[in-house]
Computed example of a mutant assay.
Amino acid sequence: MNTQMTYTAFLDEQCLASGPLVDVATAIQQHANQSNATVLIFNDQTGKQIDLDISGSKQDIQQRYAEHPETVKKVGRPKLGVISREITLQQRHWDWLDQQSSSASAVIRKLIDKELNDPNSESNKMLAKQATDRFMSAMLGNMPNYEEATRALYQGNKEVFLDLIRDYPKDIYQHILKLSAYAF
């Protein structure tokens, strides 16, 4: 599974830009200078629509949306991206964790990473379905076959799903295929 955050911007039915947030924001700003048309931006991992601030220069946008390490001192191991939170488990879970050769936190991180990297896991299939559904709802809520395609998506019926979406606009169709790649 792709764990790098990517975004896609659409101008009506046309894909305007796709990739890291800074690249999408820069492309939208360039387009905004030429047109006042509304652009919709989506997080590719969640399917959620987002808003961007494209004011200022190209350098302002690059500073605003470039991925850079946090400079604020945090408790724990911030260079590794570790965030401290409380977790509640049953005694048998703690007993099992205590028997492992690594710390409880390390074991839990490994289990989560294993799940995240398995595109065939049930949780990742559901996440892909939800992302696809959110995108389709925003872009195609009034299109023919939308509701039937959504039902086929959640039922895991790939053939019916693909048949129902085949006549959608090309860029939207391609993006749905990308989002639903791990849904079935």
Rank of each mutant, 00 (worst) to 15 (best):
L116W: 10
K129Y: 01
D95I: 04
M136R: 03
M136A: 15
D167W: 11
D44L: 00
E147A: 14
V82Y: 07
Q99F: 02
Y146S: 05
A37D: 15
T150M: 11
K73I: 07
V82K: 02
L179E: 11
E70G: 03
I28R: 14
L162P: 01
L97I: 06
S101G: 08
E148N: 04
S55H: 11
E13F: 09
P69I: 13
D98F: 10
D171A: 14
K114H: 14
N33L: 14
Q34F: 15
S35A: 12
M126L: 14
N33W: 12
E115M: 08
A32K: 12
T71D: 13
T132R: 10
A152C: 14
I176S: 02
S123N: 12
L179K: 07
E115K: 13
I41N: 01
E13Y: 05
L140F: 01
Q4N: 08
T6G: 00
E159V: 06
K129G: 06
N43G: 04
D98C: 04
S137V: 08
L11E: 11
K79L: 02
A138Q: 04
L89P: 00
D113R: 10
V39C: 03
M126I: 11
K114Q: 12
M1K: 08
D167Y: 15
P144A: 12
A131H: 05
D113H: 15
Q59F: 10
H93G: 06
L52C: 01
S180N: 01
A183N: 01
Q63F: 03
Y168A: 13
N120A: 09
T3W: 07
V82W: 03
G141P: 08
N157C: 06
Y146C: 09
A131I: 05
V22P: 03
A152P: 05
G76H: 04
S101K: 10
Q99K: 10
Q45G: 11
V39F: 15
G76I: 08
S102G: 15
D98G: 06
K73E: 04
W96F: 15
L89G: 04
A27Q: 07
R166F: 11
Q99D: 03
E13Q: 11
G47W: 00
A131Q: 09
A25M: 08
I87W: 01
Q63M: 06
V39I: 15
K178G: 01
Y173I: 03
F10N: 01
Y154V: 03
Q59C: 02
Y182C: 05
G19I: 01
Q49G: 01
P119R: 12
N120R: 14
T46Q: 13
D51V: 00
S18N: 09
M5T: 03
S121N: 07
T132Y: 04
D118H: 13
Q49W: 00
V39T: 12
M1A: 07
V22D: 06
F42H: 00
M143P: 03
V160D: 13
P78K: 08
